[in-house]
Design a protein around this nucleic acid. Structure first.
Lengths: 226, 226
DNA sequence: CTCCTAATATGAGGATATCTCACATTTGCT
DNA sequence: AGCAAATGTGAGATATCCTCATATTAGGAG
């Protein structure tokens, strides 16, 4: 049994998989593991999720779990990265065809609503991002996600306000994305009425920041389906 | 050995201590435990802090640790609550004698700087709040803290802007406090230059939110010593 | 001073979870 | 068929939190 010097290049599992599944059989098993993990997290949270339970529910042995995920955190990170990729696509789509400040207002307010609704509806995301992350690697995933989204937003802003300093716009856009996440996390951890009020307050604050040229915002906005 | 029906009322340890220390001897031991825990967290983070290490460093047995703290999280929560109480006193002092909008601007900008500096300097706070709120109880402590601080801020705002809706001010103040914390957590997790830029961007955003009546802010601000 | 009770202190070991590893089985290819 | 690489297995090594039965100390009453 001579193992290769480098086990296998990571390709699909973002969290340094111990071994990449190459045959169809193992790819399907990995999917079953992730599905089982998501189900268990939805039921009782990621703390309550035990590796032995994941293995049993997925119909594999503990050993197989550790063939593809170096540790428990890696499963959670993989799920997180999948949800985040979804969110990034959603944000990029919503901001893609923004043409003016009013369009940005509408798109952004809609994005906040969409994110809020997603967190309310998805118990897995809710658990993983609730509070924050016990795991440094998870925080890095979160940061990278916000940076990517912030870059998209910054580009739109730069288009709409060519006179503004690009570096300042980038900082502002990154901060906006992080604070949006923080607000949504806060909103889902209090009762519904207060959560709604907090979301509304954040919208006011952030739209005033994004569009400082025009003084009084008006009008409502709608969420894009996503 | 007949134990009392109710062990003892919690008085100083906020996290449901198993037993309240009544004699001087035990009060001093509890302090030693907390000091040891803080030292260990500063060294390697709260995850790396082992209960056996805390006991050894404090010069007590494992059993004694569990006499006063029901679990590992309780030690961390006790430390967190102490730091928070310090922060609350600081915020209340800084906002106490605000008389006008300019004063609020200055006081608030100074508070943000102070918080930022505190987090940068205090490795224990940095670890405890650095995202790692794996513990629901810790999050609740954080929320209660922000609510208390938000109430102080809301009161000041109500004084300065009597015409505004009190409920809206309360929501806005609470959100402001939470987002301030989120910004500081973010700022300390990136490099210093970017952190400074993020803090500056947040100040701009939040001062525009707090003082919407006057259009352009000006001037710099100073931190109160605290 | 003595005695008694409540408070306090102790640490071996129970409980539970993650993760390893030596070995067994399956797949794909020639 | 035959072989090598990929994949699968689960008992148990390891680590940490926490319990509990027992021992020791403090402080007041007589």
């Amino acid at each position: 049994m001579n193992r290769p010097a480098v086990p296998a290049p990571a390709e699909d599992l973002p969290s340094s998989p111990r071994r990449a599944p190459v045959q169809r059989r193992s790819r399907e098993r990995v999917e079953r593991m992730l599905t089982a993990a998501a189900t268990l997290i939805a039921e009782g949270g990621s703390d309550a999720m035990r590796m032995s339970d994941v293995a049993e529910m997925a119909g594999v042995s503990i050993g197989s779990l550790y063939q593809y995920f170096p540790d428990k955190g890696a499963i959670i990170r993989t799920l997180a990265e999948r949800y985040n990729a979804q969110g990034r696509a959603c944000i990029a789509a919503a901001l893609a065809d923004v043409r003016d400040m009013d369009g940005l207002r509408e798109a952004f307010a809609g994005l906040i609503d969409t994110y809020y609704a997603m967190f309310l509806a998805e118990p897995v995301m809710r658990d993983i991002w609730s509070g924050t992350q016990a795991d440094k690697a998870l925080r890095d995933i979160d940061l990278a996600d916000s940076r990517a989204n912030g870059a998209v937003l910054a580009e739109v802003l730069a288009r709409l306000r060519p006179s503004a300093d690009p570096a300042a716009l980038a900082t502002s856009a990154f901060l906006t994305m992080q604070l949006g996440e923080a607000t949504v996390r806060l909103a889902i951890s209090v009762d519904r009425a207060e959560g709604d009020a907090l979301i509304a307050a954040f919208k006011r604050m952030v739209l005033r920041e994004l569009c400082p040229d025009e003084e009084r915002a008006r009008g409502r906005s709608r969420a894009p389906d996503c």
